[in-house]
Write a protein that binds this DNA or RNA. Sequence first.
DNA 1: ACGTGTCAAGTGTTA
DNA 2: TAACACTTGACACGT
Length: 437
Amino acid sequence: MQPRGPFTGRLGYACLNTVLRGQKPPVFCSRNVRIKTIEEKGMDYVRDLARANVADLIPMIEWSAANNIHFLRLSSEIFPFASHLQYGWDISFLQAELKAAGDVAKRLGVRLTMHPGQFCQLGAKSSTVLEASLREFEHHCKTLDLMEMGPDSIMILHGGGTYGDQAATLERIENTITTRLSASARARLVLENDELSYSAEELLPLCEKLSVPLVFDWHHDALRPSSLTPTELMPRILAIFHKRGIRPKFHLSEPRAGAMTLRARRAHSDRCGQLPLELPSDADLMLECKDKEQGVLHMYRIYKLFEPDVASLRPEADDATTRTSGRRTKLDGSGGSSTSPRKKAGPTAKEQERSLIARTIAKAKEVAARTGRPYTGPPDEEDLARLRQAELSSRDVLLDMRKRADAVRADLKAGRPRTSTAAEDLDEAGALAEEPE
DNA sequence: ACGTGTCAAGTGTTA
DNA sequence: TAACACTTGACACGT
């Protein structure tokens, strides 16, 4: 199905290895703590957690290399509260352990990157937020420095908020980058287009001016498109990486099947199924999907890049819906939930079901009127199952997103205002347009 | 052991 | 206005 050429680059996953996490004892690098516990147990407890997190870096890197994965993102939770104003602490006492992990990564050829959280606002107006952002960013940098990682170990940030004035905020970001970052932090900084505030095109002028590479994210680009297509943007994106001597890096995620609203489409699916056509064949691509390393192995199989070790494979969830944050609520409303179930992620399963039935009936009536055939009543279970399948297919969502992104691009090129990329209805979702038997 | 509510931090969008 | 989406799930407590 894919017309793209062979992919020779590296696929990576972020922060957590679900296979190792499930082992006994578990291997993971994101042990965390609450403030209350810090106050009860003291900082030594936090440092012990951090030591355990660092110790698990090595098996995670080794497992990855053994499974042909040479690209990882380190979790920001590896050092809980390290940059906190009140409960912060110095990671230097772990220098030897960090260097050991870095040595393993370099020996096995595993690229390590980091991605500080949304709290890092280089364009913040508030000095409190800006100082916290700088502490956090420099802390991430110190982690990679202590591991003695090379220039490919970059740190990704988004533009962040716009504070109602994108141009003014971009100036503040520039000022922060040029006057507030350490040399090492600036050397590792890269920016990434996001899906709400800064498209690739809106970041590129700053990136080009300061020689800060841009990590291009296809999913974000679909939700906040530039006037230029990814193909048109690609030479500019690659030029900065090449100028800096940093291996290009990209991000890929996909919306969950059935996602129609903007909110739902922002969320990430369990796995990815399509390599972007514009992806350079030798690029590093970070997969941001819920199934982590399984997403990479999944892609290895789809594109026949590697034959994964059977022992490393886990089956794909069969009950994934538009619900996110690890929720696995089925369409019929049953199913477990690993996080707070009373909080809604989009419409509830019952609401989705009601809506689906209503639209289906309306469509059937319309078809009946158009074709002269009698309307035979509401859909039965079999109809619904078929419609769910067609309507909620991830492929349909991707195609719809691409189509809407193209429309936004056309608007931007024509100087018209930016419009929404969200789907308002399901009329174009494949099987719904089919006529009943 | 398991289920569930909550957790350091920011911003924008939506129901 | 509160919930939720994002780069990332785990802690902590109650049953």
